[in-house]
Computed example of a mutant assay.
Amino acid sequence: MVRLPLTPAEVERGQRLGALLRRARGERSMLATALDARVSPETLRKIESGRVATPAFPTIAAIADVLGLSLDAVWAEINRPGEDAVPEPAGLGERRRVAS
């Protein structure tokens, strides 16, 4: 399977994700955090360093849960508006008008 190169925006989002997780982890050890999230310490290290810019959703959800981060907070941090933001899926938060 051939992986396409990451775009600069994807690389930047990966770096922001890594920085967020490092800040949230604080003084807690990487090993303890990884084991609690049921991911390998190497995976967590690669995500925090930005080497894995597009980790799997379940991986991020597990790490965020262990660190007490909401997925909304993670999304807001890594996908800041005006920086090639990925649009929110259509229909979320919108009310449909009913024709009368």
Rank of each mutant, 00 (worst) to 15 (best):
E94L: 06
L17V: 00
R97W: 09
E10H: 05
S40I: 11
L21V: 11
L69G: 00
A37L: 11
F57D: 05
I47E: 00
L35H: 13
D36I: 10
G68E: 03
S49Y: 06
A56E: 15
V86D: 01
G91P: 04
I60Q: 12
R51F: 08
R38T: 12
V2C: 02
L4C: 07
R80A: 12
G93P: 08
D36T: 14
A19P: 03
D72R: 07
P41T: 06
E83N: 15
E77N: 08
A32M: 07
A24P: 01
L6N: 13
P58T: 01
G18W: 04
T59S: 01
T54R: 15
F57E: 11
G14L: 11
I60E: 06
P89F: 09
L6I: 08
Q15A: 13
E77D: 12
L92Y: 11
R25E: 07
L21H: 03
A90Y: 10
R13A: 15
T43F: 00
R23C: 08
R97Q: 12
R23L: 12
E88C: 13
T54P: 04
R51M: 13
G91C: 08
P41V: 04
L69K: 00
G68C: 05
I60S: 02
A90C: 05
L67N: 00
R13T: 11
W75V: 00
A64E: 09
R96P: 03
Q15S: 12
G82V: 03
E94A: 14
L6Q: 14
I63F: 01
P5E: 10
G93N: 05
E27Q: 10
T59E: 07
A61L: 13
E12H: 13
L20Q: 10
T7K: 14
R45C: 06
R13D: 04
S49N: 08
G91T: 05
R3P: 12
V52C: 04
P8L: 07
R3V: 15
I47V: 12
E12F: 04
R25I: 11
S29V: 15
E12S: 06
L20W: 02
E10R: 08
M1S: 14
A73W: 09
L35P: 07
D65M: 13
G68P: 08
E83L: 15
M1N: 06
W75G: 04
G50T: 01
I78K: 07
F57P: 01
P58H: 09
F57M: 09
A64F: 07
K46G: 13
A62D: 02
V11L: 14
A62M: 04
A24E: 01
L4D: 04
R28A: 15
R45V: 05
D72E: 15
L17N: 01
E48I: 02
L21R: 00
W75F: 09
D36R: 12
S100P: 15
G18C: 14
E77K: 03
V11H: 10
N79C: 10
T54Y: 05
V2H: 11
E88T: 15
K46S: 14
S70C: 07
R80G: 06
G14R: 00
L20G: 11
G14A: 08
V52F: 06
V52Q: 15
R97A: 15
E88G: 05
R38M: 13
E10P: 03
S70N: 08
W75N: 10
A61T: 05
S40F: 00
L21M: 07
R28C: 14
R16L: 09
S100W: 13
P41C: 09
D84T: 02
R25H: 02
P5Q: 10
V52S: 11
V66N: 00
A85K: 05
E27Y: 07
V11P: 06
